[in-house]
Design a protein around this nucleic acid. Sequence first.
DNA 1: TTGACAACCGAACCCATGTTCGTCTATACT
DNA 2: AGTATAGACGAACATGGGTTCGGTTGTCAA
Lengths: 224, 224
Amino acid sequence: MKDFNKLSERQRNMLRYIEKYTADHGYPPTIRQIGENTGINSTSVVNYNLNKLVQAGYLTRSQHVSRGLRLTGPVPGSKGKVAAVQASAAFSRIPIIGHIFASEPVPVPDDYSYDEDSMIEVTKDLLGGTDPSQAYALKVKGDSMIDAMIREGDIVIFRKQETAKNGDMVAVWLTDKSETTLKYFHNEGSRIRLQPAHPHMEPIYVDPRVCKIEGKVLSVIRHI
Amino acid sequence: MKDFNKLSERQRNMLRYIEKYTADHGYPPTIRQIGENTGINSTSVVNYNLNKLVQAGYLTRSQHVSRGLRLTGPVPGSKGKVAAVQASAAFSRIPIIGHIFASEPVPVPDDYSYDEDSMIEVTKDLLGGTDPSQAYALKVKGDSMIDAMIREGDIVIFRKQETAKNGDMVAVWLTDKSETTLKYFHNEGSRIRLQPAHPHMEPIYVDPRVCKIEGKVLSVIRHI
DNA sequence: TTGACAACCGAACCCATGTTCGTCTATACT
DNA sequence: AGTATAGACGAACATGGGTTCGGTTGTCAA
């Protein structure tokens, strides 16, 4: 979470107001109420800053829902008893930095500054112990990952790494074919065996020199 | 305050729902949501009973304010503290009540005991808005769900329901074949089309009489 | 039978409220 | 100067969601 002091004064005031209003009324304020009480004259500016606060991890929003705000925790410096709760955060927020499909390499986090808008909350067990700061997510485009039992729209959670242990599922870029694929990794010395997750499909064997590991697959999430 | 037991069953359900929804979301439900979740078909009836509850002292309302509800205290019989603590939780715990494979019907939660050991934490977005109390999880055994793009070991999150809308992914028990399958549901009048998630596989058509819906698939989780 | 009343229904109505968009300013970098 | 970007503004838009109203059903007592 971004440092509270790094937020703009406006944003801090907004958080304080939201906390206070919610405590006073039992339900959160509207965008217009937030604006009126923090000296903002336009609903769009409130909306803009609310999204900033979501990105910074201070609250969550429900789209198209009136008063659909929720603080993720107490506002620093307040005496609010607003559910301190999940300080022990059993989940974390990781960025969805782009899409994955067969014909292009897998994006990796510092390839470019990613769109902060798209974050996903995942429970820690989906990260398999990986430090959340090393994890990122990609959304699958197209049906090219079918042999990995992964569909269009699935969200694949990766850990950034360029080596793999046998049995890991990895994203590899095959430099000779200019193709990305998700397979189980098995180093057999002179060659690498890439085993599809689909039990009826045959492995492929590649030269280690054309096999660039781009990340390790930690988990897959599918919304229906 | 009027005795809680003097309230109608509906009114008690409404209070319970309001408390639970507020705890789950951080803001109160709308009149329509209350109706949908307590079996009331008209907003005016919800409104009517909300006013009754105000008279009875159980809640206060703000006129012309969406979600302008507030409970005056914990609802008798509920675990109010738990709700308060979970107030900002963006995830919930749902039970893993068993396994799913082709040759047996899908287990359905009986309201009784779950093994506390087998619970899984999921972020709310995996439930697609479903009340967490209506959700449960099953672990996939065997490779029989391959046509649904689901592997051994995947965790499938269901919602308990016996009907489906077109386009839902459902677990169905085919009484003539004694077989469970996961497919997209399309009612075509005289027959039901069950479409595999796998894009290269053909749908099957079944008689509505042999097609027993056991639950709706909300999401799938795969740990690697 | 009739009237009063509690409970309920469905649809219409319309304000409440989130979202989008074109525009503007200030600042920083090239 | 020219361009990019963050922050802000206000108006228009579309939908969310509370309110109202005419009508129905069932119960109870006069």
